[in-house]
Amino acid sequence: MKFTHFRKGLIHGIPIFLGYLSVSFGFGIMAVKSGLTVFEAFAVSLFNLTSAGQTAGVGIIAAGGSIAEMILAQLTINLRYSLMSLSLSQKLDKSFTLPRRLIASYGITDEIFAVASAQPGTVTPWYMYGIILISTVGWCLGTVLGAAAGSLLPAAVSDALGIMLYGMFIAIIIPPARKQRSVMAVVLLSAAISTLIYFLLPFISSGFSVIICAVAAAVTGAVFFPVDDAPETEREDAV
């Protein structure tokens, strides 16, 4: 029984594995360029398992930012996981005891959440372990390959791969922005504030800039375009 669920999770995680492998390759390159060692880049990926948070985190490390800045940046950027955790917690099988919840909560990412919440009925601990394991292996393997081989690649190639994570971010925000004017407004506002800060207020670090932009744009969105049932809408988009 355990094995059946575990295997199902592994199989459902294969597309995530492939996606993470290539995206984290870009992260590995970027991390080394920012002054981390291959092992440090691997540790960041293993302990965080999140693209946006890691990218901002490495930026803060490279800039010698404060611990407060790191905490605030991670809180803001990764806050979305609380919503996903909350939503997924309603879908857990009865066998999900506290220790098992403590283990599985490690692996709540956008993609794993999307696949798990698309399952009919409840999800079991071993299903979650399977999907999280294969996804984490892809994420860490790609990071190490990117970090180690990034320096072997010609500069033109590693430069071009550095844009990969941003390409993925664009692929996440554009389709819902196309469907919903409210999301489009939030995306445009956030990009506009970020650009203004970058050029006009360069003393604001990138970590704090993301926090300021995200909070300002999301508050504006919440005031002008309140949503009725956020987790449901999000689940629909994610799947």
Binding site: A52, T55, A56, T76, I77, L79, R80, S82, L83, D110, A155, A156, D159, A160, G162, I163, Y166, F169, I170, I172, I173, P176, A177, S182, V183, V186, V187, L188, L189, S190, A191, I193, S194, T195, Y198, F199, S206, S209, V210, C213, A214, V215, A216, A217, A218, V219, G221, A222, F225, P226, V227, D229, A230, P231, T233, E234
Partner: peptide, 25 residues
């Protein structure tokens, strides 16, 4: 709920722009 709904899009947009234009050579 609305704030949390918009946060991911706002975060990713702020991280992408204008940083993407300085991501390569």
């Amino acid at each position: 709920k609305s704030f949390l709904y918009y946060i991911p899009y706002a975060v990713l947009s702020a991280m992408t722009f204008p940083a993407i234009f300085f991501a390569t050579g």
